[in-house]
Design a protein around this nucleic acid. Structure first.
Length: 420
RNA sequence: GUGGCUGUAGCUCAGUUGGUUAGAGCGCCUGGUUGUGGCCCAGGAGGCCGUGGGUUCAAAUCCCUCCAGCCACCCCA
């Protein structure tokens, strides 16, 4: 094979593409009910946008970005996630001037240079949404519930919703310090990775999968004991409101997200059916981010759904069976004169929004019929010299094998005939 | 980035202890009906056996490199 797609980057074809479209469609319709509008931003941004927002010491920034310099030496990067770009766009376009409150959603590819495995790709797609300008914890609950609705609507009803509060710049440092000290006092029993984490990002040790570390984490200080009154109140409201909305969830103080900008509410939607890549959606609040990136002091919250993972789940659970679209009418013409007329018949039907596919390649009637059958079409229009001379065409019902001769003049009535 | 498993036709897979023209099923094409589909029957096309190198008289088969997929770590969607 001459040229192959890059590692971890996939082509998406028929039948799966229909599932993609269905999912995207579902998202657009549902999000619109909550007041979200789509935004489209470039996939390429200044490298610095991601370094500053996601955090210099996160593994995304340290080793997973597709970054390079352009012809003039400017450092660029393909977006590894969507929030930073949307925040940048919100600031740059002065959206807060007229009204700081805004709800956006976006759908598109993201890029991370990781070792691919099932549910993890170098180019992957997210459906994400962001809300700016609302500090009220009820929006946190509403957003999480909307994501829940999103999955329910696709027949995915067994995801685990896990929530946590990461505290805020007022209370988190105290906890982080306490937690670091705990790690230090147990250095000897920590795994190699957690040693490293102790320096750079101690909280990550919370979701280490090494058994010794896991048992150690059970005894570790928990963030919930150190939340300041405001954070605690915020989190409580999120929980009770989410309960009122009818979403079932659990609180997990170990969920730590890999992006530095999160604070207070964070959440994940996980499945047990996709192996180790179990997060199908995740998100959280990022109140300081807009200001950090040079904008006004506007709070924010967002989430992202992993398309590939969601679609793998859908296919796995057979909630939606991907199928190729079948033409309602399949046109078979033999000879130039018949082809001329076939085009007219087809156009007439298409004007009535009927899906017509004409066979241009079949070498024999038999071959074309075989293809019509394979395409699972219910109706076939057949035309040859005989029919042309008689001013008719044959309409064949593939199910009953009945066929009728229809005068060319009655093309207008075809749509009704086909519907019954 | 680390460790493990894997790579033969479009798909799913056979392929003996290395042995000469690499197979099956499904799918595809053609014929059995100068113009009628599914089933059946017959025939056919399609493989640099992932890539490059090595061992050997001889490699799909043994060894190494690289590439890709999968699994775990890591990370997260």
């Amino acid at each position: 094979m001459a040229i192959k797609a890059l590692r971890g980057m996939n082509d998406i074809f028929s039948p799966e593409i229909h599932v993609w479209q269905l999912v995207e469609d579902h998202a657009r319709k549902l999000f619109a009910l909550y007041g979200y509008e789509e935004v489209r931003t470039p996939v390429l941004e200044e490298l610095n946008l991601f370094v500053r927002s996601i955090g210099e010491t996160t593994s995304i920034v340290e080793k997973e970005m597709y970054s390079f310099v352009d012809r003039k030496g400017k450092a660029l990067a393909l977006r590894p996630e969507g929030t930073a770009s949307i925040v940048r766009a919100y600031i740059q376009n002065e959206r807060a001037q007229s009204d700081p409150v805004a709800r956006y959603y976006n759908i598109g590819p993201m890029y991370r240079y990781e070792r691919p495995q099932q549910g993890r790709y170098r180019q992957f797609h997210q459906i994400g949404a962001e809300v700016f300008g609302i500090a009220n914890p009820r929006i946190d609950a509403e957003m999480i519930h909307m994501v829940d609705q999103f999955f329910q609507g696709l027949g995915i009803d067994d995801l685990e919703i896990e929530l946590n509060s990461l505290g805020c710049p007022i209370c988190r440092p105290g906890f982080t310090k306490k937690f670091s000290e705990y790690l230090d006092s147990h250095q000897s029993s920590l795994c190699e990775d957690c040693h490293r984490r102790t320096q750079k990002n101690p909280l990550r040790a919370l979701d280490c999968k090494q058994e010794t570390c896991m048992t150690l984490m059970k005894e570790a200080p928990s963030i919930q004991d150190d939340l300041c009154d405001e954070c605690e109140g915020h989190f409580d409201t999120v929980l009770t409101h989410l309960g009122h909305l009818g979403s079932s969830f659990s609180v997990n103080h170990k969920i730590v997200r890999g992006l530095d900008y999160y604070l207070r509410t964070t959440f994940e939607f996980t499945t047990s059916q996709l192996g180790t890549q179990n997060a199908v959606a995740g998100g959280g609040r990022y109140d300081g981010l807009v200001r950090l990136l040079g904008g006004p002091n506007v709070p924010g919250i967002g989430f992202a759904v992993g398309m590939e993972r969601l679609i793998e789940l859908i296919l796995l659970k057979q909630k939606i069976t991907p199928s190729v679209l079948a033409p309602t009418v399949y046109g078979i013409a033999m000879g130039d004169a018949a082809h001329e007329l076939m085009i007219q018949v087809a156009q007439s039907l298409r004007r009535s929004h009927i899906f017509v596919e004409i066979d241009y390649e079949g070498q024999s009637l038999k071959a074309m019929m075989r293809r019509a059958d394979r395409r699972q079409t219910p109706w076939v229009v057949i035309m040859g010299d005989e029919e042309v001379n008689k001013g008719i065409f044959i309409l064949r019902n593939m199910g009953t094998k009945e066929q009728k001769e229809i005068p060319m003049g009655e093309v207008q009535q075809l749509p009704q005939r086909i519907k019954t």
